[in-house]
Amino acid sequence: MKLIWVAVMLLVVSAQSAAEGMSAESNYILRCAGCHRMDGMGAAAAGVPEFPDSIGHIAATEKGRLYLLHVPGVISSSLTDQEIADVLNLILDRWGEGAASYFREDEVQTLRAKPVANVVEYRRALVEELRQQGIRLAEYPW
């Protein structure tokens, strides 16, 4: 009986380790693409803005980088700081148009630790700030 439990626990551990340590590509598909979609075009009607001509502008500002680390799907992703950095950098590679620098693990750690009380209000302030600079972000109903 003990042997069976050991076998079961080994299976559970191996299943967990299989889920962990995925590539940025797999983490994007598993944790982001359901809403942001494989082509990064999101679904504006459901409150998921598109990446192109938007994510690069956001990540090009300090305020925007803090916002990205407090997007609910990012902060609750259960990924490590390095994994989050890798997924964000993959998104920047694909849809950032070279506008922003890459995220590093230590930066992700620092930004996640900073409190953002109301992420929707914070985003509105960011949108307004960019609008005054002549940058319009993708449609977002909130």
């Binding site: 299943a15 299989a18 598909i29 598993l30 693409a33 359901g34 979609r37 679904a43 998921v48």
Partner: peptide
């Protein structure tokens, strides 16, 4: 348009 994505063996 949007979906839930899971991992299966």
């Amino acid at each position: 348009a949007v979906a839930w994505i899971g991992t299966c063996t």
